[in-house]
Amino acid sequence: MSEEMSESGVVKKFMYVNRKAPYGTIYALESLEVVLIAAAFDQDVSLAFIDDGVYQVAKGQDTKSIGVKNFSSTYRALDDYDINKLYVQKESMEARGLTDKDFLVPVEIKTAAELSALMEQQDVLLSF
């Protein structure tokens, strides 16, 4: 566990693990809200998209017809919050017929093995 001091205290590594598709359940939106709130604490934050979670950052979402807020635009604001480590799990992406061109924000594609190594480095994992 690497801990460095920032002006506001100890910086820990937080990973948000997102495994649910958007809109069908509230998980994706809840995760995003927690990410935005917790961004105020200046921690080392990353977001992982696994299984159906990869759909959260899929391009071209248009929720007009279902009358729900299109919160996919908000992922593009994460950079303003200094959150820029977004990982998409490769096997999950491929199983769903998606490629690295299909995402609405810059993401890094990671294999399950690579992602599990990253998970091992975390201090806190938050699952949605």
Partner: peptide, 13 residues
């Protein structure tokens, strides 16, 4: 249901 396809960005797939 097309509305659910569009919402999820899956139009054309």
């Amino acid at each position: 249901l097309q509305a659910d396809v569009d919402a999820r960005g899956m139009k054309g797939r």
